[in-house]
């Protein structure tokens, strides 16, 4: 029996902007520590923007509705786990 992936949700306070190298994540506040991350993957930035703009922050929906290969999706979920550790994404098992 396959286990369904955990639910990933982008937290509301995260702002995203595309840049030439990929993009920036910014969790707003007054110059808080660790609130800024540089992401050098355009694919990941596109996914995050898609989740924010189309799926109300539901990253799982953004992944599943994408055209990424199974291997790419696996990599994206690993990247989302990393973003969860850095406080940009909530994960509910």
């Amino acid at each position: 029996m396959s286990q369904s992936p955990p639910a990933y949700r982008l937290i509301d306070e995260v702002k995203i902007r595309r840049e030439a190298f990929g993009g920036i994540l910014y969790k707003y506040g007054c110059a808080d520590r660790g609130a800024l991350s540089f992401i050098n993957s355009r694919q990941l930035i596109d996914l995050l923007l898609s989740a924010q703009q189309t799926y109300s922050g539901d990253l799982g929906a953004a992944v599943e509705h994408s055209n990424f290969s199974a291997a790419s999706k696996q990599k994206l979920y690993a990247a989302l786990d990393d973003l969860a550790r850095r406080g940009y994404v909530l994960v509910n098992s």
């Binding site: 902007r17 595309r18 840049e19 030439a20 190298f21 920036i24 910014y26 110059a31 800024l36 540089f38 050098n40």
Partner: peptide, 12 residues
């Protein structure tokens, strides 16, 4: 590495 070339806009 990311900041040297300048971003498309300031962050703050």
């Amino acid at each position: 590495r990311f900041l040297q070339g300048g971003l498309s806009a300031p962050i703050t």
